[in-house]
């Protein structure tokens, strides 16, 4: 009986493993496609867009292996142009059998991308906005959460509930009046509309931090108060160090949100010197829609920092998703 159950379990896990492996492949395919397309020559993208391994055509010519580009067939022979080495540019007529396929990584997509796309400037613009947003959000949210969780005063519950209710309001409702407000302040085409609001708290993260601060024993705060510590001191010396894991979650999610933000930079940043990576990549796609290699290269370059950040902070990240219920 027991061995029967074990056999049944073995079957079950084997099927589950097979299903997971297949699903993993499906989920991976877009990443593999992005990487391999970014390294393919335009010819290879045209001729074999699903080949995961970037390849090119090669030919032995005067004892050297040179890359060629097949142009057309002529009387059973292939006209091909040499694309590398000292004979670059020369056109030959060869037997089709002489040309063979080989692995070839074409880094020119990246070179072209970086030339056409002012990556470093957009990166800098994005990092400035991300950095200030993280600073503003962490600072303001932890101060407010302290005021809501660790200071007893009448009205804090009411304020908390008002804050929760405002989370229901979709951004589209406030979008237009805020645009007018920032226009009247002369803030259009500056980073201020993207950054200043982060210094005035974020309902979602205040909620998260308040839950965390309520788990800090009141006796600890009481003792600090009796020792003569002011509230600001208690916040800085006790609460901040204690809540490091929660603050890390807030910082991480804020960083990723503002790195990925699309709508706000689209509304407020009008000049291509001010663009973030999101907006820059959108404009790049508008201009080079048919040039797949550089597009994939730039998408990859934009995603890579976030993917690396995710791998470095995976534990915190997954913890944050479980706590807040939404991804970054």
């Amino acid at each position: 009986m027991r061995s029967l159950i074990r056999k049944h379990r073995l079957w079950k896990t084997t099927i589950a493993q097979a299903a997971l492996l297949a699903l993993a492949l499906v989920f991976c395919a877009p990443f593999i496609w992005m990487l391999s397309t970014s390294l393919k020559t335009p010819d290879h993208i045209q001729s074999d867009s699903t080949d995961p391994i970037p390849k090119a055509w090669f030919l032995d010519y005067h004892g050297q292996r040179v890359r060629v580009r097949p142009l057309r067939r002529r009387r059973g022979r292939l006209e091909a142009q040499i694309r590398s080495g000292p004979y670059r540019g020369r056109t030959l007529l060869v037997r089709p059998g002489r040309i063979h396929n080989g692995v070839y990584l074409d880094w020119r997509n990246y070179k072209k991308g970086f030339e056409e796309f002012p990556f470093l400037r957009y990166l800098w613009n994005t990092l400035v906005i991300c950095g200030l947003s993280v600073l503003g959000t962490v600072l303001s949210c932890s101060l407010v959460a302290y005021g809501l969780a660790c200071v007893e005063w009448s009205g804090r519950e009411a304020l908390f509930w008002v804050m929760l209710c405002t989370m229901m309001i979709p951004g589209q409702v406030t979008m237009i009046p805020l645009f007018i407000l920032f226009k009247n302040l002369g803030w259009i085409n500056t980073i201020l509309p993207l950054v200043v609001p982060t210094f005035l708290g974020n309902a979602f993260f205040i909620f998260l931090l308040r839950q965390f601060y309520r788990t800090i024993p009141p006796s600890l705060l009481e003792a600090a108060r009796i020792d003569g510590g002011g509230d600001l001191r208690i916040w800085a010396r006790i609460i901040l160090p204690l809540s490091k894991p929660a603050l890390l979650i807030v910082a991480l999610f804020t960083f990723i949100n503002s790195w990925n933000d699309f709508l706000n930079p689209l509304i407020y940043l009008l000049n291509d010197r001010k663009y973030t990576l999101s907006i820059g990549l959108t404009m790049f796609q508008g201009q080079y829609n048919s040039d797949w290699g550089p597009m994939m290269a730039m998408s990859l370059i934009m995603s890579l920092p976030i993917i690396i950040l995710f791998f470095l902070t995976q534990k915190t990240f997954i913890q944050g998703v479980k706590l807040t219920g939404v991804k970054g």
């Binding site: 999101s278 990549l281 994939m296 998408s299 990859l300 934009m302 976030i306 993917i307």
Partner: peptide, 11 residues
Amino acid sequence: TVVPLVASCVL
């Protein structure tokens, strides 16, 4: 889910 939305749109 962590891939920037714009990048996944282009992809």
